[in-house]
Design a protein around this nucleic acid. Structure first.
Lengths: 226, 226
DNA sequence: ATAAGATACTTGATGCATCTTTTTTGATTT
DNA sequence: AAATCAAAAAAGATGCATCAAGTATCTTAT
């Protein structure tokens, strides 16, 4: 008798949600962009229902907001809010790195090195999309190695909010984006939680500097307009 | 199984979401309870649409899960998962307490003392519902004092998941539930971030012990059945 | 009496019509 | 040219009909 793997059927709303999440994390939406349910339904080739479902979930994630009852937009981010997200990331990714350093297998470290090597190559070639994706993949790999799924979910949600504010400078900064990933891997190899934590904190603070600068510039622009 | 009164307009899905969140955080749902969209629609006196919207959001929060395509339930919690949530809370509420200690005004401290005094009274009188609500209010007040809305949102989501697992022992434990709130307030008065953080960590670890024990008992029960 | 197959029922997903309110637009006035 | 206001269009919210898939119940052949 032939064997089959149990297949799971995904809902349309989940597919749409996933696609919009990808778009957000890849920076394919800009702050202030407006989303229209009917327009998206046409693009996705579905009725409005699954789109509404996805939009509602995204709104629940605070990745998009209802500026007014009929005006769905990618939100701006205040500098204060970005700093808060950064502070939270430092605590959470610090915990992930510490835990990962304690339990990482050589296969885990291999996986991280593979991502980093690919990331290096993507940056050389100038493939921005792949560059951001692999950078994120590195960050998400730590909670995965540490077996912290709840933390991973929180982190993804934060990235959903940061995605539209990833600046070109961040990507154009090239290797600065991933410089701090090397000491993370070294710390994991030595099973040194404190060093792993410090390295990832450096990455968040220093590597993410161009993002903060973009947000600061955005705020100045807002201020001048008012 | 929780009951609901019929409600009036505002934004139906948000109202339903809010009501279900309250019910979850008050422990009015038990792990394994099944939710039915049509039944809830009848209870709330709405069509199924706003209920679906709210359910989808809750599922996105991982506060409820689709056990199978048409089977919506309050999820069980593994001990591992609870410990992860606790570790995350320690980091995040620690950050909130530290920040709050630095910026707390006398009005903030007054508010905390008011909550604590009311909580004390609720426990004396044996009002369990009010007891849990005020305990949560205390915890949510710290990120509010610290002006950390993102952290507050994350915390609320975690509590949505913990709600159904709050044990009677936790509530019957009486003052043990809030014993550690006093040193938190003392630390805030002295503007001592380290002490505030330590006090809230003690509360999470020691005060929450009955919850962990209930989950452990639940797991043993599961194991015996298998 | 048992088990496989058929049938009825339940339930969330999807699509769509309609409602209310907002947003847009364009004519008109200042 | 700018501001104002009314009509038209747009857009999300809500309700509901229908669909497909899962669950339970009943039937029937062995």
């Amino acid at each position: 008798m032939a064997e089959f793997t149990t297949l799971e059927h995904e809902n349309l709303n989940s597919v749409v949600y996933g696609a919009l999440c990808d778009a957000l994390m890849q920076g394919r939406f800009q702050p202030g962009d407006r989303l229209k349910i009917r327009a998206l339904a046409e693009q996705f080739g579905t009725s409005v229902t699954p789109i509404r479902d996805a939009i509602l979930r995204l709104a629940n994630d605070e990745a998009i907001t209802f500026r007014s009852p009929r005006d769905i937009r990618i939100p701006e981010m205040s500098e204060t809010r970005y700093r808060e997200i950064r502070a939270i990331r430092i605590r959470l990714e610090g915990l992930a790195a510490e835990t990962a350093a304690q339990v990482a297998t050589s296969a885990d470290i291999q996986a991280l090195e593979d991502i980093l090597r690919e990331n290096e190559r993507a940056i050389e070639v100038g493939d921005r999309l792949k560059g951001t994706q692999l950078n994120q993949a590195f960050h998400f790999m730590l909670p995965q190695i540490a077996a912290l799924p709840v933390l991973n979910t929180i982190l993804r949600r934060l990235w959903l909010q940061m995605g539209p504010h990833i600046s070109d400078a961040y990507i154009e900064g090239g290797r600065a984006m991933i410089d701090h990933h090397y000491p993370v891997i070294e710390a994991l190899k030595r099973h040194d939680p404190a060093a792993a934590s410090m390295a990832i904190v450096d990455d968040i603070l220093l590597g993410g500097k161009p993002i903060l600068e973009r947000i600061e510039r955005g705020q100045e622009r807002e201020a001048r307009r008012a």
